[in-house]
Nucleic acid binder design. Structure first.
Lengths: 188, 188
DNA sequence: ATAAAATGAGATAAAATTGTCTCAAAATAG
DNA sequence: CTATTTTGAGACAATTTTATCTCATTTTAT
């Protein structure tokens, strides 16, 4: 990728974000659909991303980077685990579409460097859950794997509910956190 | 649909079920992919379902009928709401792929009779949640809509975890029910 | 304000998917 | 067992999606 003007960078990100949103709602969306959703022309889409695959790969990296940044700012190793997990969940809700994209796109085999980067995202979350189990705030009779599934799917539920307009953006983090934590915390 | 032999009926259902499973995992799967997943030839797939749309429509009806049957057998109007909801969740887990299909396919506008049928599925669940709130076992500070989102997404999480082989089929209902109920039940 | 760059609509080409068909082999029915 | 039906591989046709390109218009940079 060349050095572009700030405007073109901004455009590029806007397209990626529009693609992310639409693909979360409709994974089968065509490039014409994506261009329309981004309010740009099809030719412009191709100018920014030469192939569908190029778009998807770049979106994967963007999603990964965004999510990594969120995780880095959440201090998952501080405070009791439920607090830290709540913090993480709240920060991730606006990025639910990208989270969904990362979970569901099937190109990991083709791009092995993406696998490594993806593990750097999962590791701190797994460590947080294991910390919660060690400190007794998370149940030990439920596997960390299942807890991660619950996080993944609850996060996307919250994102989709916002998108659908059925819950308010400002309520989503609280609802999600309560729904999630209620299922995995020990009863005190 | 003509009257076919029992064998052809069984074949047809097997194809629908294979399609359902693959589409839950990979919504962008092509008809060639679906045929392969069902272990049949592409020509055979087309003999059973003349177009992709025909396949999807019939899958929608099958999913609806299956889910409706499950709901009809679950006595949602009996026992405390958490018990009834647990019963429902447990019964729905094996049909998570079909539940996901119903939630995500975008053909409701084109087939209005499917909309009505879909509402006959949603209404008893909504009624159950509202009963739970009335009897004080479900929280009233969380909207029934959000509870339904939680049910939907938790169900699919359980189905996918089974599919991925990360939880045992026999554990999935319990894990799902605990995860779900912990988030929506009142604390007693 | 002007020149350069970017854009979108739409036409066109290439590739992929959907859909159709043939025929030898496999499965089924009786 | 035999006759009939069904099937799958693969060739081919039709349709859709992806990708390429043109050019007048719009936007941006200076």
């Amino acid at each position: 990728m060349d050095t572009d003007s700030p405007l073109k960078d901004e455009r590029r990100l806007h397209i990626l974000d529009a693609a992310s949103e639409l693909l979360a709602i409709r994974p089968t969306a065509s490039l014409a659909d994506i261009a329309q959703h981004a309010h740009i022309g099809k030719a412009t889409l191709h100018r920014y991303f030469s192939t569908r695959e190029a778009l998807l790969i770049e979106l994967a990296y963007r999603a990964l980077n965004l999510v990594s940044d969120v995780i880095a700012t959440c201090r998952l190793d501080q405070d009791p685990a439920p607090v830290a997990l709540g913090r993480l969940a709240e920060a991730l809700v606006p990025h639910g579409d990208k989270w969904y994209f990362l979970l569901n796109e099937h190109f990991w085999d083709v791009h092995p460097d993406l696998i490594q980067a993806e593990e750097t995202v999962q590791a701190p979350i797994l460590a947080l859950i294991e910390r919660g189990q060690a400190e007794g705030t998370f149940r030990r009779d439920i596997s960390p794997t299942w807890m991660i599934y619950m996080l993944d799917f609850t996060l996307f539920a919250a994102w989709q509910a916002i998108f659908d307009g059925t819950i308010a953006r400002r309520d989503a983090p609280r609802l999600m956190i309560e729904g999630l934590l209620g299922g995995i915390m020990t009863k005190t």
